[in-house]
């Protein structure tokens, strides 16, 4: 977990001292999409290579999906409602 905080902090520190051009920013943004694609592939591999998860997927998948959908929906709605009410203070 700490390696995460360290890498982001390192990036921020480098980012402050680098002389940024528009093309450099574009390259960095493209790089993020590439890294994300690879990471998602690995996530898929971790699901696919675990037969227990694949079989559980059909047994308890419905409960799991409902949990994820409702937690996401209510998280978004709560933030949206609160930020909407406080939008003058936030801006």
């Amino acid at each position: 977990m700490w390696s995460i905080a360290v890498t982001v902090t390192l990036g921020i520190v480098f980012g402050i001292y680098i002389k940024w051009t528009d093309s450099l920013k574009k390259i960095n943004s493209k790089f993020q999409v590439l890294g994300l694609t690879v990471l998602l592939f690995f996530m898929g591999v971790s699901i696919g290579s675990n037969p227990e998860i694949i079989s559980n997927l059909s047994l308890i998948g419905l409960k799991a999906i409902t949990f994820s959908l409702l937690t996401v929906i209510f998280s978004v709605l709560t933030i949206f409602t609160v930020t909407h009410m406080l939008r003058r203070n936030l801006s």
């Binding site: 982001v8 390192l10 993020q32």
Partner: peptide
Amino acid sequence: LSVGLDIGS
């Protein structure tokens, strides 16, 4: 690291 660079930029 790339995300950090983005923030730092």
